[in-house]
Every structure is written in C-alpha cells, then in structure tokens.
Design a protein around this nucleic acid. Structure first.
Length: 118
DNA sequence: AATCTGACTGTTG
DNA sequence: CCAACAGCCAGAT
C-alpha cells in the first residue's frame, strides 16, 4: 500500500516524536500541514503498518490514550515504560509531556449554536 | 464518483 | 467530572 503525501508526512512526524513524550492527533495534524485533520491522522495510525512509527506515542488531546487496534494495554505499557504516567486510561502528566509544546489559548467563535433549553 | 467509517476535538448541559 | 451533539479531514469500500 502506498502512502499519500499526507500519510507520509504524518508518519514522518510521529517518527520524530522523542521518547518519553507524547503528541496529540491535533498536533500531528497541524504539523502535517492540516490543522483539522486529526481525524485522518487517527485513521492513518490505524494502519500502523509501519514499525518505524511509534503510534503508541500518539495520544488523544482529551487526555486519553486513544486506541491501539484494541490493544490499549500494550500502548499503556509502552507509554509507561517511557516515563509517561498513565492512570487507567488517562495520562496524568500528559499536559507536561505534550510535544512539541503547549499551545496558546485563543478565543474562537463557538461552533455549536446555543441550543436553548426550555 | 458517492457513501461510510474512524485510534478525534471542542463546547454545552 | 461525565455525557451528548456537532463538525471536520482523509482514506477505504
């Protein structure tokens, strides 16, 4: 299976993630050139046909591990072995471990319309 | 070419 | 803190 430009880019970025550090799908997508392609990033990771790519270092920005083809425990173990504190299905120091760095808060218009309640 | 899915994200309640 | 809804992109079928 050939990888498209985007896929290739994502894989390259994930491979550049230093050990002991984790990157979110959003960060990877952003680095790949597409700020809103985190969905596609996860999709590519799902392939995981590249042993050179530490997919286990890619986690969800929500603080969860995300997924690993069904072997979440393996991913958890790998992250833990790298020094990442994982509590259950949540990373404790995920925020400090984030790579490349923290983001800056920015105001943005709310997407979902205020659905009135009663 | 069209449709669906997916390891997601962010906000609202 | 947890649950639900809406939105987004790319790949796969």
């Amino acid at each position: 299976m050939k990888d498209s430009a985007f896929t290739r880019r994502v894989l390259s970025i994930v491979r550049r993630i230093p050990p002991g550090r984790v990157a979110t799908y959003g960060d990877v997508a952003h680095a790949a050139g597409r700020t809103r392609a985190w969905r596609a990033v996860g999709n590519i990771m799902m392939n995981c046909s590249t042993p050179d790519v530490p997919c286990h270092r890619v986690v969800a920005a929500a603080g969860g591990l995300g997924g690993y083809g069904g072997n979440l425990e393996m991913k958890r173990g790998l992250l833990r072995a790298e020094g990442v504190l994982v509590s259950g299905s949540r990373i404790r120091d995920f925020r400090e471990r984030r790579w490349p760095k923290a983001e800056k808060p920015a105001k943005k218009p709310r997407r979902t319309p205020p659905r009135r309640l009663t």
